[in-house]
């Protein structure tokens, strides 16, 4: 991971867009159109691009409240399980509720140290 000047978290691979990319790559690998190394390169690019795009293009703000069920801090990664959570989205003021949400969060400070 540390071959480039900057490295990026691969946690976004677990998002829906990352999962679908992985699926699509798996399909191509299964058909032997590409080899796994190339797929890894694609995923590495994805890590970079999604981090940059979320940082630069997205302006939306969000606040949420709930009751914390479980918390964990391990290897600079926070994991929260929050119950009965209400999200408030800034623009439009709509709110979304869910009975359980898992939050996985990496440190924004020093992604290079990972």
């Amino acid at each position: 991971m540390a071959n480039n000047a900057t490295t990026y978290y691969d946690l976004y691979r677990h998002s829906s867009i990352g999962q679908m990319l992985t699926d699509a790559l798996d399909d191509l690998i299964g058909e032997e159109r590409i080899d796994p190394q190339l797929a890894m390169k694609v995923l590495t690019q994805f890590d970079r691009v999604i981090t940059e795009v979320l940082n630069e293009k997205v302006k939306a703000r969000l606040s949420f409240k709930g009751s914390l069920d479980t918390y964990r801090f391990c290897d600079e990664v926070w994991t929260f399980m929050i119950k009965n959570v209400t999200f408030k989205l800034d623009n439009g003021g709509t709110s979304v509720t869910a009975d359980k949400v898992k939050i996985v969060s990496c440190s924004a400070k020093k992604p290079d140290d990972k």
């Binding site: 940082n55 997205v58 703000r61 969000l62 606040s63 929260f80």
Partner: peptide
Amino acid sequence: LKDGVLTVNGREYVFHKATGEYEW
């Protein structure tokens, strides 16, 4: 929190910044 992707109730949201308050 910042630079996040949220999937809730079958919908997806992206945010630049998020603040959360919760009790344990």
